[in-house]
Deep mutational scan, measured.
Amino acid sequence: VIAMPSVRKYAREKGVDIRLVQGTGKNGRVLKEDIDAFLAGGA
């Protein structure tokens, strides 16, 4: 999974398994917005 360390930390704090999140950034990078969208109700 491609993600910046700050995004990985954010996901950990929110209790999200970053491997389950679909990245929308360049080359499938997971963004902070992707974590929020995942929490809001889905992949």
Rank of each mutant, 00 (worst) to 15 (best):
V1H: 08
V1A: 09
V1S: 08
V1T: 10
V1E: 07
V1K: 08
V1R: 05
V1W: 04
V1G: 08
I2R: 05
I2L: 10
I2V: 12
I2P: 08
I2Y: 05
I2D: 10
I2A: 08
I2M: 06
I2C: 05
I2N: 12
A3H: 07
A3L: 05
A3C: 08
A3V: 08
A3T: 08
A3R: 04
A3Q: 06
A3P: 05
A3D: 05
A3K: 04
A3N: 06
A3Y: 04
M4K: 15
M4T: 15
M4R: 15
M4N: 15
M4W: 15
M4A: 15
M4S: 15
M4V: 12
P5Q: 13
P5L: 11
P5Y: 07
P5F: 06
P5H: 12
P5K: 15
P5M: 11
P5D: 14
P5R: 14
S6F: 09
S6V: 08
S6K: 10
S6Y: 11
S6L: 09
S6G: 11
S6N: 12
S6H: 12
S6D: 14
S6A: 13
S6T: 10
S6E: 13
V7C: 04
V7S: 03
V7M: 04
V7K: 01
V7Q: 03
V7D: 04
V7G: 02
V7A: 05
R8D: 07
R8G: 05
R8L: 15
R8N: 06
R8P: 03
R8Y: 15
K9H: 10
K9I: 10
K9A: 12
K9D: 15
K9Y: 08
K9T: 08
K9G: 06
K9E: 15
K9L: 11
K9R: 13
K9C: 07
K9N: 11
Y10Q: 02
Y10E: 02
Y10H: 04
Y10P: 01
Y10M: 03
Y10D: 02
Y10V: 02
Y10G: 01
A11E: 01
A11F: 01
A11W: 02
A11L: 01
A11I: 02
A11C: 07
A11Y: 01
A11K: 00
A11D: 01
A11S: 06
A11H: 01
A11Q: 01
R12C: 12
R12T: 14
R12N: 14
R12K: 15
R12M: 15
R12Y: 15
E13P: 01
E13G: 08
E13H: 09
E13D: 13
E13V: 09
E13I: 11
E13R: 12
K14R: 13
K14P: 00
K14F: 07
K14L: 11
K14W: 07
K14I: 06
K14Y: 07
K14H: 12
K14A: 08
G15D: 07
G15K: 09
G15I: 04
G15S: 07
G15H: 08
G15Q: 08
G15M: 08
G15Y: 06
G15A: 07
G15T: 04
V16T: 03
V16W: 01
V16I: 10
V16A: 04
V16D: 00
V16C: 06
V16P: 00
V16S: 01
V16H: 01
V16Y: 01
D17M: 05
D17I: 05
D17R: 04
D17K: 04
D17E: 07
D17F: 04
D17Q: 05
D17A: 05
D17T: 04
D17P: 06
D17L: 06
I18G: 01
I18W: 07
I18Q: 01
I18P: 04
I18E: 02
I18N: 00
I18V: 07
I18L: 10
R19E: 11
R19C: 05
R19P: 03
R19H: 10
R19L: 10
R19N: 12
R19Q: 10
L20Q: 12
L20K: 13
L20R: 12
L20F: 11
L20M: 13
L20V: 10
L20Y: 11
L20I: 09
L20D: 09
L20S: 09
V21K: 00
V21P: 03
V21Y: 00
V21G: 00
V21R: 00
V21F: 03
V21T: 03
Q22V: 14
Q22T: 14
Q22L: 12
Q22A: 12
Q22R: 15
Q22I: 14
Q22P: 13
Q22N: 12
G23I: 02
G23A: 08
G23S: 04
G23L: 02
G23N: 03
G23H: 03
G23W: 02
G23K: 03
G23Y: 02
G23E: 02
G23V: 03
T24N: 06
T24F: 03
T24Q: 04
T24E: 03
T24V: 03
T24H: 06
T24Y: 03
T24D: 02
T24K: 06
G25V: 03
G25K: 03
G25E: 02
G25P: 01
G25N: 02
G25I: 02
G25M: 03
G25Q: 02
G25F: 02
K26T: 11
K26N: 10
K26V: 12
K26F: 11
K26L: 12
K26D: 10
K26S: 10
K26A: 12
K26Q: 11
K26G: 08
K26P: 14
N27T: 06
N27S: 09
N27V: 05
N27A: 09
N27I: 05
N27Y: 11
N27W: 11
N27L: 09
N27Q: 10
N27H: 12
G28D: 05
G28Q: 06
G28S: 06
G28P: 02
G28E: 05
G28Y: 06
G28R: 07
G28N: 08
G28K: 07
G28T: 04
R29Q: 14
R29M: 13
R29P: 02
R29W: 10
R29G: 07
R29L: 11
R29S: 12
R29F: 08
V30G: 00
V30Q: 02
V30N: 00
V30I: 13
V30L: 05
V30T: 05
V30E: 00
V30P: 03
L31E: 09
L31P: 00
L31S: 10
L31Y: 07
L31I: 09
L31K: 09
L31Q: 08
L31F: 08
L31N: 08
L31H: 08
K32S: 06
K32G: 04
K32Q: 08
K32F: 10
K32R: 12
K32P: 06
K32T: 08
K32Y: 09
K32I: 12
K32N: 06
E33W: 10
E33T: 13
E33G: 13
E33R: 15
E33V: 12
E33M: 12
E33Q: 13
E33D: 10
E33F: 08
E33Y: 09
D34A: 00
D34N: 06
D34V: 00
D34Y: 01
D34T: 01
D34R: 00
D34K: 00
D34F: 00
D34H: 02
D34I: 00
D34E: 00
D34G: 01
I35Q: 00
I35R: 00
I35H: 00
I35K: 00
I35S: 00
I35G: 00
I35N: 00
I35M: 01
I35L: 04
I35D: 00
D36C: 06
D36G: 03
D36N: 07
D36T: 05
D36Q: 05
D36V: 06
D36M: 06
D36A: 04
D36L: 05
D36F: 04
A37Y: 09
A37K: 14
A37W: 10
A37E: 09
A37F: 11
A37M: 12
A37G: 07
A37R: 14
F38N: 03
F38W: 12
F38Y: 15
F38E: 03
F38V: 08
F38T: 05
F38R: 04
F38P: 01
F38Q: 05
F38L: 07
L39I: 14
L39N: 05
L39S: 06
L39E: 05
L39A: 07
L39D: 05
L39P: 04
A40E: 13
A40R: 14
A40L: 13
A40Q: 13
A40V: 12
A40S: 12
A40H: 11
A40F: 11
A40Y: 10
G41H: 13
G41W: 11
G41Q: 14
G41K: 09
G41P: 09
G41I: 13
G41D: 13
G41M: 15
G41F: 13
G42M: 15
G42K: 12
G42V: 15
G42P: 14
G42H: 14
G42S: 13
G42D: 12
G42N: 14
G42R: 07
A43W: 13
A43H: 14
A43S: 13
A43M: 14
A43E: 13
A43V: 13
A43K: 14
